[in-house]
Amino acid sequence: MGYKKKTIILAIIAILLAMLYIFYDLRGNIGYILPRRIIKVVAIVLTGGAIAFSTTIFMTITNNRILTPSVLGLDSLYLLVQTFIIFIFGANSLVMMSSNINYLVSIGIMVLFSLLLYRFLFRGEKNNIYFLLLIGMILGTFFGSFTDFMQVLIDPNEFMVAQDRMFASVNNVNTDLVYISIIIIVAALIYFMRFYKYLDVMALGKEHAVNLGVPYDYIVKRLLVIVAILISVSTALIGPITFLGLLVVNVSYELMKTYRHFYVIWGSVFISIIALVGGQFVVEKIFTFDTTISVIINFIGGVYFIYLLLKENKSW
């Protein structure tokens, strides 16, 4: 089967699953339930799409299939911000405080952080991208220590609120935020389009790309900013899902068996939506909210990652 056909099939599965989720067992107050479910699906499509998309770009930039933007430390920073708010102002503030403000503040801090990180590490000539990532990861650990410290001090009841923030969930997605997210993501994608044609060439590696006339450093910096924005938006919208990108992009590469970004990106976006909608369905209907989607996805994604690492492969 060719990759075009596979892409179409994935798209169909994604749409069918979304339909199933929206219309399954639709009883009671339809006027309330239906819009809620649709908003949830839209949030999932946004997040899943943004994560899959940015992870694919990120892997091309780093020329590596085992790295995801989550190593930039943004997830940990988000948790730190959330915990910090609860720690200082109490759990009520998080409920009281307009979620729009929280959302915008979180995105602002994450994007600002990544810009500072890039700026700091890309001055000078020897800008090794792995170096950037390692620093990001250490800072992530650093944020994690602070978060842990505050979490222990938080009152156990308030901690439940913090815990909700720790795990991605679409159950309480705010409709306004979905609209804002759509605007930001679309804007980022429009900005991205001018760089789209370079992706295939950049996958050959820096030297080949420069040789073929790609303004490599210029594009990498811009793409990294786009990645940071997309990851920040999706994290602030439903919470961190660290290993989703790793999982879906690798599955997409395995399935598509092509280097063409067009198909890999679409493939990973659809796989991501399938995983999230399917996962959410399983969480609601089988686990009856006993666990959260991000915990399951991180678990599966993590195990799959270890499998990938142990499998003999040339991609890293």
Partner: peptide, 11 residues
């Protein structure tokens, strides 16, 4: 075919 990128920009 990648060698043609400077001329074709991928197309």
């Amino acid at each position: 075919a990648f060698g043609r990128f400077p001329y074709s920009q991928g197309k």
